[in-house]
Amino acid sequence: TFELKGKVGKVVKIAEDHYLVESEGDKWIAYSDEKLSLGDRVMVVDVDGLKLKVKRIP
């Protein structure tokens, strides 16, 4: 299986209740415990079905 946990991506869209993150050339629906901005670099900390939980990284 394709393992996304630990992968790095970038926030490419902000929606009302989720983010769109591009990682490894694909776009994924993501959510975070912190507020993210367009262009933020993020790391995948968990995968919930087809949704990614991400956190901001420097």
Rank of each mutant, 00 (worst) to 15 (best):
K5E: 15
G49Y: 11
A30K: 00
K53H: 09
V42S: 01
L4A: 13
V11L: 06
K51E: 06
A15P: 04
K53A: 04
L52W: 02
A30C: 14
V45P: 00
K55H: 10
Y19T: 05
V54E: 00
K51Q: 08
D17M: 12
S23E: 03
G25W: 04
A15H: 10
E3D: 03
P58G: 08
D33L: 13
G25F: 04
V44H: 01
A30V: 14
E16T: 11
I29C: 12
L4E: 15
H18M: 12
I14R: 08
G39E: 10
K55V: 13
E22V: 08
K55I: 14
R41A: 12
G6C: 05
V44C: 09
G25Q: 05
D46M: 03
G9A: 14
L20D: 06
W28G: 02
G25S: 05
E3Q: 02
K27G: 05
V44G: 02
K55M: 14
L50T: 07
R56H: 05
V21A: 05
E3F: 03
E16S: 12
K10P: 03
G6W: 03
R41N: 09
D40C: 13
G39L: 13
S37I: 10
S37C: 09
V42D: 00
S32M: 05
H18E: 11
F2A: 15
V8T: 07
L20Y: 13
K13Y: 12
I57C: 14
E34C: 11
E24C: 10
S37N: 06
V47N: 03
K7G: 03
D46L: 03
I57Y: 08
V47S: 03
V44M: 02
G25P: 05
V8E: 14
K10I: 07
I57W: 11
I29V: 08
I57P: 04
E16Y: 11
L4H: 05
K51F: 14
V21P: 00
L20A: 06
G39W: 14
E22F: 13
G9E: 00
I14A: 10
A15W: 12
D40G: 05
S23P: 01
V54C: 05
G49H: 10
D40L: 09
T1D: 15
P58I: 12
A15Q: 09
I14T: 08
K27V: 07
T1C: 15
G25A: 05
K35I: 07
E16R: 13
V11G: 00
M43Y: 06
V54R: 00
G6V: 01
V54M: 03
H18I: 13
V54W: 04
P58V: 09
D26R: 12
D33A: 13
V21Q: 01
D46C: 05
S32V: 03
K13G: 10
G6I: 01
D40A: 12
G49C: 08
K27R: 08
V47Q: 06
S32T: 05
V11E: 00
A15Y: 07
G9H: 02
V47A: 04
V42M: 01
V42Q: 00
L38I: 09
D17I: 11
L20K: 06
G25N: 05
L50A: 09
M43S: 05
R56G: 05
D40Y: 12
V12C: 10
E22K: 06
L52K: 01
K5G: 14
V54A: 02
E34H: 08
G49E: 06
D46E: 06
E22T: 06
V45I: 09
K53Y: 13
D48H: 08
W28K: 01
P58K: 06
